[in-house]
Write a protein that binds this DNA or RNA. Sequence first.
RNA 1: GGGCCGCUAGCUCAACUGGCAGAGCAGCAGACUCUUAAUCUGCGGGUUGAAGGUUCGAUUCCUUCGCGGCUCACCA
Length: 497
Amino acid sequence: MSELDEQIQNRRDKRQALAAAGVPVYPHRYEWDLEPTDVKTKYAAATAEELEALGLRLRVPGRVKAIRQQGKIVFLDLHDGREKLQLFIRKNQIPEADLQILDHLDLGDQLGASGQLIRTRAGELSLMVDGLTFLAKALRPMPEKWHGLADVEVRYRQRYLDLASNEDSRKVFETRAAIVRTLRTFLEARGFLEVETPMMHHIPGGATARPFKTHHNALDIDLYLRIAPELFLKRLLVGGIPRVYEINRNFRNEGISTRHNPEFTMLEFYWAYADYRQMMDFTEELIAAVAEAALAVQGKAEVTWEGRPINLARPWARLTMREAITRYAGLPDERLDSLESLQAIFAERGLAAPAGGTYGHHLMALFEAVAEEHLFDPVFITDHPVDVSPLAKQRPDDPRFVERFELYIAGMELANAFSELNDPDVQAERFRQQLTAREAGDAEAHLYDADYVRALEHAMPPAAGNGTGIDRLTMVLTDRQSIRDVILFPLLRPEAD
RNA sequence: GGGCCGCUAGCUCAACUGGCAGAGCAGCAGACUCUUAAUCUGCGGGUUGAAGGUUCGAUUCCUUCGCGGCUCACCA
């Protein structure tokens, strides 16, 4: 028998022994008063004398994280995922039936304990136990108590073990929850209405990406998991919801990396009567509020990336895409003015020509190649080329460019926003151009969405829209360099066997 | 998909240039009435990711495969 099988058998035997002694091994409920974390926070300051005078009797549930036996007394740590509460058990002061439980307990078991709250001589807040309730058996051994679980593969595949043994991991997901909560609070306070739009699309749109394909049997039609909610949310602007947002999953059938998971969470919001400049101000405020909440949860004073502080002081820098290239590549602005000139730069630098091959594709690719990695503190990169921005409104003074920005922090694109194109005829023309690009081999060019154009024909108010990646925002605010560390169950290949 | 790296006991990790696979924690048995990584005594636990190959001998070298990490490509 292998060592693991032996441990499992031991634990099964103990469970059997308890059942034979008449102990319900999987009871249906447990009446409890406080969890360990709440006990710790409420009575952190109480002295031994105060607790004695109080004579507080509590029932506390949790997972057994440590057992320290010392002759006829047993110390036991009960954990609720955040904090532990120590149980102090005198074996001769609990009922015979509960002694059975104690004698058949293993690390990892779920247990309820009743008793009086005291402080030990060593000063540890503890429950002086007078009764135990068995709640569930851990048939498998927990990861080691001191080093926790280090194997990244197991941490991702068996996240329950990661959460149960690594406090840091729990903290990341608490922070993520605070980030989403703060986004909602901020937007709700400003009159934005939360909506849910379809995840299954006939025409995948609103972003440049390859979709997942699926099939509906009863209708016998192919459907696509959405790559963005954008076109539906803007239909809602037409419908008379001038401030609207959605926080939900997008799906993109592309490579996996430290910054990409096939399903990821996006906030998209649309703000009628505003343009992209107002949206920049709004975004600064929004992200600053979220950062503050994230720091509070983590008990940190500043946002850091790989230990290096990120300066979130406002106002944040704003650079046009051409200015960013000029600054970081040392290229004069005049050389960024034509496709021919850009192609010459690509040739000089040995850069591969981008898919699509237009002026805009080249400018965007050049920006990503030379500037992106330098953008550590928050910066808005603005004024993208029109041919890579088919849903954005052109600049009145230079229609080759659009009123758009991307927010970069720690070298990562966190948000993408623009003044929304609302002229149906221009939009129709942009869609046609995308189709042409598609026919020329650009697999990610947008599809023509006739109903969306029809919606614009009913008049969409001028508006600014913003899409912010929640996973990446969480990465930045928790100093995690892999997106898998901020997604509870990241996509992995299935396990062998 | 390409390149590089990793996979040893339940967990965390050792094992020199190819020469008897180890430690701590966890487990099992015992001692101990204020411990908190408790301590002390003793014991058990391995298809070294899988399959082949080279060799007197492979955790170690080679090949293929699996899974993971980083990175490039793609992208948000």
